[in-house]
Design a protein around this nucleic acid. Structure first.
Lengths: 231, 231
DNA sequence: TAGATTGTTAATCGATTAACAATC
DNA sequence: TAGATTGTTAATCGATTAACAATC
């Protein structure tokens, strides 16, 4: 009996399994063991079996998983069994690239329109797709019953945009703007802040022991300039 | 006494604290409590205090943290106290957008060059930055002592590119290609797979209970087409 | 001093790993 | 049947949260 309330970490791995299955099927592979899926994905075989078991028993003991069957199950679980319509708000450099990227590389998602508030960008075409003024967004969201939205506007307008799309019915946001969005209960936000990703990588790019050791030495004696707490 | 071997989850939060401090300093705020940092970041105050405590005691009891002082400490901890040179491999739509984005939005990182193997892209300028042939990468990596690299090439060439840059001295990779890279011990890879991010969001965009309930019903009786395990 | 907030230790929670019976 | 591999329960590990003494 599949357990509801499945953790985010599990859900994040599902599309990776899906991608691997797509590749395997293309290569003509019909059965795959959790061990082999482990090799392909980098997750442990136990974890993969456990992740799948949250949703049902999709494998065959002694034989493994049927790739086509498991793929179909995963599509249904994630919600990719029919194409998902989405929109991109913010048609600057990043927004345009994201739009093109998804149009060409993501067969499960269809971008219906891109929006911007900059009059110079409105009317542009991104691979044939219209860039519309942002106040047309509510209309399109309702017309296409859009539930997922990409936000790639500057930090200072992201919250405003989020409020707008949530008000029109959007339930999940992929946020590329470097701000923490405040959203009502039940709305999901994933942050894809490229700057943060890159900066946290830098931590690992140099001998951290050395750097942290240096930090200690410097700290000796030095304290923050004392601020009067009450003034 | 700062503990070495700090977990990835902690490190991923540090640049977020940094970003918030940058904003606070710009607004002229001099002291900030963990409580207020919690409001800005969405992490709990306890977690923030604990994260910082791994590296030292940077606050003042009763008063909070001096924003400028804490920012400087964070810069040193992350390794952003001097500008980090980096390169982008793959100057297609996504690579170009990432390059522009970082050039304009990330003051701590400098992109030295972009590379591609497509002759049509080589010689292009991205905001004045040269797109070079990929076989020039090792040279540039050594010349600038590049330790961090962005990879935005198609999935099928990502591993090859990774091998190349690692061989030339790169220690950390931000990988936008939808593949699991195999890298030697000690090399760090962060995956920023936009397709995966978007697909996992879709899970949350529709009433999951309903969908999963439907999945159960359909499964009743149906089993995967049995594959002969030995044939 | 009284009030506030840190830094740190202990308790809890959740996720991963290990083990193994079920079964193809 | 013997071998393989799943599905699931139990054990471990790690990260978050709670609590509170230290102290500004």
């Amino acid at each position: 009996m599949p357990n509801r309330n499945i953790s985010k970490s599990v859900i994040k791995r599902l599309p990776i399994y899906l991608r691997i299955l797509d590749q395997l099927i293309r290569r003509g592979v019909e059965m795959i063991s959790s061990k082999e899926l482990s090799n392909e994905s980098g997750f442990t075989a136990e974890q993969i079996r456990k992740d799948l078991a949250y949703f049902g028993a999709f494998g065959t003991r002694g034989a493994g998983y049927n790739t086509v069957f498991l793929r179909e199950k995963l599509l249904k679980i994630i919600g990719l069994d029919s194409i998902t319509d989405t929109i991109v708000i913010g048609a600057g450099n990043l927004g345009t690239a994201l739009t093109r990227y998804n149009l060409t590389k993501n067969p499960y998602v269809n971008i219906v329109a891109a929006f911007d508030k900059n009059p110079r960008l409105i009317g542009n075409k991104i691979d044939g797709l219209d860039v519309l003024p942002i106040d047309k967004a509510p209309e399109i969201i309702k017309e296409y019953n859009i539930k997922v939205c990409l936000i790639s506007v500057p930090a200072h307008s992201a919250q405003e945009v989020a409020d707008l799309v949530i008000n029109s019915g959007v339930k999940a946001i992929l946020n590329f703007a470097p701000v923490k969005l405040s959203v009502p209960e039940g709305i999901h936000v994933h942050n894809a802040d490229l700057t943060i990703e890159l900066q946290s990588l830098i931590y690992y790019s140099s001998a951290e022991e050395e750097r942290l050791a240096r930090l200690d030495k410097e700290s000796k004696g030095k304290k923050p300039e004392r601020e009067k707490p009450f003034s």
